[in-house]
């Protein structure tokens, strides 16, 4: 996804008004950002997605005044959303670690599965890498900076996650 950088973007204008103390602008900004945050938190936190999206947005709004440049709103929101989604998913421990051995055999009827089914078999960290690369279009360097892990780790996680998908789709 290409993030808006136009300072006249509605989200940026709303962020400026919200920072000025206008709570109607705050709720407009919430309505504007919620679908974006939900789209990031859903594939990473899965069943905990609504909790993760709520907590991510709380973190975004509580720290809004630390956003030095409103034009950076979307990248900043994305970073918070990914970190909160991973944190909530790990906390709730509803996901299983990514082990390719956990994947069903190619003839397993379970592999009539959709993306969600494959995601369930990955760890939150692997799902975060997938979301940043495949859904958000970040390169490995940018993803590694956002997740605060080495680029090599991003690459290996991405490889394993994609291998999971490849096996699922080729069933």
């Amino acid at each position: 996804m290409t993030l808006p950088t136009d300072p006249h973007d509605p989200g940026v204008s709303l962020a400026r008004a919200a920072l000025g103390g206008d709570t109607v602008a705050m709720q407009d900004l919430l309505a504007h950002l919620a679908p974006y945050v939900a789209r990031i938190c859903g594939p990473i936190a899965l069943d905990s997605g609504p909790d993760a999206a709520q907590e991510a947005l709380v973190a975004v709004f509580r720290s809004l005044r630390t956003l030095r440049e409103p034009a950076a709103l979307y990248g900043w929101t994305r970073a918070i959303a990914v970190r909160e989604a991973v944190r909530v998913a790990r906390r709730d421990a509803r996901s299983r670690p990514a082990e390719l051995a956990d994947l069903p055999a190619p003839d397993d009827p379970e592999l009539a599965a959709d993306v969600r089914d494959v995601l369930t078999r990955l760890s939150p960290e692997h799902r975060a890498v997938l979301v940043l690369r495949d859904l958000e279009g970040l390169d490995e360097q940018a993803a590694s900076r956002l997740l605060d892990i080495p680029a090599g780790t991003v690459k290996s996680r991405l490889h394993r996650a994609r291998e999971s998908f490849r096996k699922a789709w080729s069933a």
Binding site: L30, P35, A53, Q54, F61
Partner: peptide
């Protein structure tokens, strides 16, 4: 899971209005 599937099959989270109100209240000292 409680999320819906959108384009490309990626699940997304659902943030209902009560959750949004919690966000607003948490954000306002």
């Amino acid at each position: 899971m409680s999320g819906d599937l959108q384009g490309g099959g990626w699940p997304t989270a659902e943030l209902d209005d009560v959750r949004r109100l919690r966000v607003m209240a948490a954000a306002i000292p």
